[in-house]
């Protein structure tokens, strides 16, 4: 028993090292006084200052936040309504529609990027932040749908009936009973979608036009001209934000489990 535990612990530690050591190295080197990436020359916050004063970088950050915010908002409204209508009033062919809605989750990102690019070219929409936002909405929607749907499925349909029985109209029942019970899932989905949008490179790469540079695209272009410790600093900040958002999202999904320990 203990022997097996030790073996499992070792394996887990190995996994963690494999996953997080590169990130840790990156974070450490963001404090490196040397402009050469691989050589340690003492502590400094210099690169963080450089980053904060880089106007192009700040614009990219602004773009990223804007795209993430708008695409998450649209995806949330559409995803929640889709989840509710698929779960509560299944219509003919709802399985096919559901499959189609979830497809972006499994399609390779490159293909999705290319497809969206082709689509925008065919309908003659110039590439800009708008097309990036549309593209992000496309992959955020199934994400929201899956998370909210899972919660909805475990929700007792009799709760809505009870509300109706107590005098609530269908809308009141949704507003006063279903929506509050879905809240943890929706908040979790929002944070997840926001993070994914903020971090996305591939789809953005294909759908962004000139001037529509998001943070990941900016980082990529900076690397092309040589790796500066400024990128390390930026990456460290990005990783930190992403991890915080994911942790927050998971926390919300856990609250929902605590609220219904019997899982009905």
């Amino acid at each position: 028993m203990t022997k097996r535990r030790g073996w499992l612990l070792g394996l887990s530690l190995g996994n963690l090292l494999f996953l997080y050591l590169p990130i840790a190295v990156l974070a450490v080197f963001s404090f490196n006084a040397s402009s050469m990436t691989a050589q340690w020359q003492g502590m400094t916050l210099h690169w963080y200052r450089v980053m904060a004063e880089d106007a192009a970088l700040l614009t990219a950050l602004q773009n990223s936040l804007l795209v993430a915010l708008v695409s998450t908002a649209i995806a949330t409204v559409l995803g929640v309504s889709a989840a509710v209508s698929l779960e509560r009033s299944p219509f003919r062919g709802h399985r096919a529609i559901e499959g189609a809605l979830l497809l972006p989750l499994v399609i390779p990102e490159v293909m999705m990027g290319v497809a969206l690019l082709l689509f925008f070219v065919i309908v003659k929409v110039p590439l800009s932040l708008v097309t990036v936002t549309i593209a992000h909405t496309a992959f955020n929607l199934p994400l929201v749908l899956v998370i909210v749907r899972a919660r909805l499925r475990r929700l007792d349909p009799r709760l809505e009936e009870a509300a109706r029985d107590l005098g609530a109209t269908p809308w009141q029942a949704f507003r006063r009973v279903t929506l509050p019970l879905l809240k943890p899932a929706i908040v979790g989905a929002v944070l997840m979608a926001f993070t994914v949008s903020l971090d996305d490179f591939v789809v953005t790469f294909f759908t962004a036009g000139p001037g529509a540079t998001t943070l990941p695209l900016k980082v990529y272009s900076m690397i092309k001209t040589g790796v500066s410790p400024e990128i390390n600093a930026l990456s460290a900040v990005l990783v930190l934000i992403s991890m915080a958002l994911i942790a927050w999202s998971l926390m919300f999904q856990r609250t929902q489990r605590r609220m219904y320990p019997f899982g009905h």
Binding site: D156, R158, L159, E161, A162, A163, R164, D165, L166, G167, A168, T169, R176, V177, P180, L181, M259, Y260, H264
Partner: peptide, 27 residues
């Protein structure tokens, strides 16, 4: 259902888990 002069006590009660006892009864 919302306009009928009847109220149903559900088999497994179907109490609203996000509301207090007061909130449930006041609904």
């Amino acid at each position: 259902p919302n306009l009928r002069p009847v109220n149903l006590v559900f088999q497994h009660y179907a109490l609203f888990p996000h509301l207090t006892v007061f909130g449930n009864v006041a609904f």
